[in-house]
């Protein structure tokens, strides 16, 4: 998926949706967030990330479920009494709800990531935050290189008789000492060279200009408008008190049927749709293609 959005749009999306998600426990808000994130991720065919998110959220959900079953007796709807301990529907529902909340938060991060174009981010930040940008650029450049060196050095030390497998933890860590020491030394040595390369090419010599300045387009307008609408409706619900929710006290239950929530969910879906439309590949490309 070629990313068409301006770099600040996903940042704004992430901030606003995290605000939504973390300001309440309301099931509709959580559902809306997950609807938004999953639609965008699925639209981008990010199946791997969808799966990965589940793996992150499951253990915590399991823990909360167990905890609520064993220790929490609050709630009205009693399901059973085991060894004199009440097991309530509310506590189980809450564990699930919070699990989904964690999942939604994870997915929202993934979504923002999938909408960020690294190149555009570099262009944008390069002029605003040159030092931080160079730091990250160098890190991204060096990681694959170091990783390769690491495995190469591991090979070399295996031929020098160092054993990495089937040894106790202490020995194992010890085995990596030589490998990591050499890698560190070589890395630091190369830090001078790469620093010199940046220096010779005039880094920090003056205010930077921007090579491919990305400008906001109708795509960003579309997404931001949908997002702003969603936010506005939500803030109204918040001020009106409809967004407060606590199952244990039965709080918010009577307003669950508030038709504004339907509007809210619709707006979530609309936002997801807008993002997908905005991010669709352009037919006539205005970008200059270098390929001949």
């Amino acid at each position: 998926m070629k990313i068409q959005l301006h770099i600040l749009t996903p940042v704004f999306l992430l901030v606003s949706s995290l605000f939504l998600l973390f300001s309440t426990d309301h099931p509709f808000v959580i559902c809306g967030s997950i609807l938004l994130a999953v639609t965008v991720l699925a639209g981008g065919k990010k199946w791997k990330q969808l799966k990965q998110g589940l793996w992150f959220a499951l253990p915590m959900t399991f823990f909360m479920l167990l905890f609520n079953l064993v220790f929490v007796s609050s709630g009205v709807t009693e399901l059973a009494v085991v060894f004199g301990k009440r097991i309530t529907l509310e506590s189980i529902l809450y564990a699930f709800l919070m699990g989904v909340k964690l999942l939604a938060a994870t997915y929202l991060f993934f979504m923002a990531g999938s909408l960020t174009n690294g190149d555009k981010a570099v262009s944008y930040c390069g002029s605003k935050l040159p030092k931080s940008t160079l730091t990250f650029l160098l890190i991204f450049r060096l990681i694959p290189h170091f990783r390769e060196s690491f495995f190469h050095l591991k090979d070399v030390y295996a031929t020098r008789g160092v054993e990495f497998e089937n040894v106790p933890l202490r020995e194992k860590i010890k085995s990596y000492r030589a490998v990591l020491a050499v890698l560190l030394e070589q890395s630091l040595e190369s830090s001078f060279e790469i620093g010199e390369a940046a220096y010779t090419r005039g880094f920090l010599s003056t205010k930077r200009s921007v090579y491919e300045r990305s400008r906001p387009t109708w795509r960003d307008g579309l997404v931001l408008t949908a997002d702003a609408l969603l936010l506005a409706v939500y803030i109204l619900l918040l001020v009106n008190g409809s967004a407060s929710f606590n199952l244990y006290f039965g709080e918010g239950l009577e307003r669950l049927s508030n038709p504004a929530w339907i509007l809210f969910l619709l707006l979530c879906a609309t936002l997801a749709g807008c993002i997908l439309i905005a991010n669709r590949k352009q037919r006539e490309t205005t970008e200059v293609t270098w390929d001949t």
Partner: peptide, 12 residues
């Protein structure tokens, strides 16, 4: 630039 390269190297 030199310190940036060092910080980046160590982070990487």
């Amino acid at each position: 630039t030199k310190q940036i390269a060092l910080i980046a190297t160590l982070s990487a």
